[in-house]
């Protein structure tokens, strides 16, 4: 990785939620980049090589599932861990996320301390 501190790519189409999460992640000391849809997420992953991706699965243009699968087949970004953000109690999503190649998942509304733990675990595992 190039930068001094790892970048987290947050992929979230809902503006309010994205703003909130960016603020919280920054306050927790993370460097955050954002993308608003699955296609933009893949581009950002290739260009910025983030350390972790937080991916909402319900996205416009290209949804999270497709983006995850495509990322897995692109050698340049296949290793980047993706934490899926899935709807509360949507059991389908949990299994589909892991199947699609995500490293972990968190349900929305996000339990923030729990999310930070999951991010830290992925950062540790990949460095």
């Amino acid at each position: 990785m190039t930068g001094s501190e790892p970048t987290i790519l947050l992929v979230e189409d809902n503006e309010v939620n994205r703003d909130m999460l960016v603020r919280r992640l920054q306050r927790a000391g993370h460097k955050v980049a954002t993308a608003g849809d699955g296609e933009a997420a893949l581009t950002a992953m290739r260009e910025q090589q983030p350390a972790v991706v937080l991916m909402d699965m319900n996205l416009p243009v290209k949804d999270g599932w497709t983006a995850c699968r495509e990322a897995q087949h692109d050698a340049s970004i296949a290793e980047i861990p993706i934490i899926a953000l899935t709807a509360h109690a949507m059991e389908e999503d949990k299994h589909r996320a892991l199947e699609a190649g995500c490293s972990d998942y968190a349900t929305k509304p996000v339990d923030f301390p729990d999310l930070l733990t999951k991010i830290a675990a992925q950062l540790d595992a990949h460095h």
Binding site: N14, V16, N17, D19, M20, L21, R23, R24, R27, N58, A87, H88, M90, K108, P109, V110, F112
Partner: peptide
Amino acid sequence: SSDMNHDLLNLIGAIRGYAEMLYE
């Protein structure tokens, strides 16, 4: 009906997130 839930969840999630930050 997941579309409706998705929007609603985002809104609730954001409110909660801001509230927690406010608290902090």
